[in-house]
Amino acid sequence: MSIHNKKLFLLCLATLAGLFVLQFLLSDYLVLAFTRILILAVFAMGYNVLMGYTGLVSLGHAMFFGAGVYGAGLSSYYLGVSLPVAFLAGILAAIALSFLIGLLALRTQTVSFMIVTLMFSQAAFLLILYFSEFTGGDQGLTLPTSARSFSLFGLEVDMTSDVARYNLALTVFGVVLLGLFAFTQGPVGRLLVAVRENEDRTRMLGFDTYAIKLLAFTVSGGISGVAGALYGLMFGYIGSAFAEFKISIEALLFTLVGGPGTLLGPLVGTGLMTLLIDRLSGVTTAYLIVIGALLIVVTLWFPTGILGTLRDRWLPWLK
């Protein structure tokens, strides 16, 4: 099989290699920060499949991230399954939920689509609070020590070790990145972009655009769930804050800043934004002002994001 867009493929490999080397250069604090960045970048990459490539702006991806968190966390907490099994359970929960919500939400468009996804996501968040005896509500649940390590294929992984967490996050990030490379840079990716650019035209070329959008929605939600499941299990805590509206907005902001519809944009956006937010949280509690201001600034002056601007100016293969 021939690989389309070889330059981008090489850049992906170089990025992964760079991220691997990074752990030997950074302080412990920054390694932890980058662990979180890698997981949240997976979330933003999932979001980007729908928003960047397919052109559908969701305001409810917190529910898919949350489905991953709770699918994984609850099955570990209540059923005591091993972490890899819990991880899979989280992903499956997110896939099932996103397929179901996609079936409904994709009957609407643009503004209605945004509001519908927002409302479903709020309903999911409120359900977590309503069943707080089971879910832990806003207090959350801390996973038992038995769920802080696992062995897979003879490999013992300790979830309290910074090095183990970083490399696990990097592995998942790498798998998702290469998977999305295949998904977005091949024929299916071309169809997603075709729907974004001109849905009516795509329908009149014989495609069931609803099915294409549902595929994008489910993949997008499923990957968000991968990130959620990993986050919950890795830090051993699940709580309703993972399904808040703010989480959806962060995915949107990270993607917008990095460059919607570019494969590596979400990583860039997540990295910059997370470091900025961490820095600001020390200074002021009102870091949400900065998120708010950035949403406006990016919308006004920077709609294609960092990598999108690079692509449009100099590097057309950066997509």
């Binding site: 071309r190 035209r201 009149m204 014989g206």
Partner: peptide, 26 residues
């Protein structure tokens, strides 16, 4: 005129051919 403005000429037509040669999504 109803084309995909940001795609190349070839990619535009590829979408159409894609439908005929590989009708199933997955």
């Amino acid at each position: 005129t109803n084309i995909y403005g940001s795609m190349s000429v070839l990619e535009n037509i590829c979408v159409a051919v894609h439908n005929r040669l590989r009708p199933s999504l997955l």
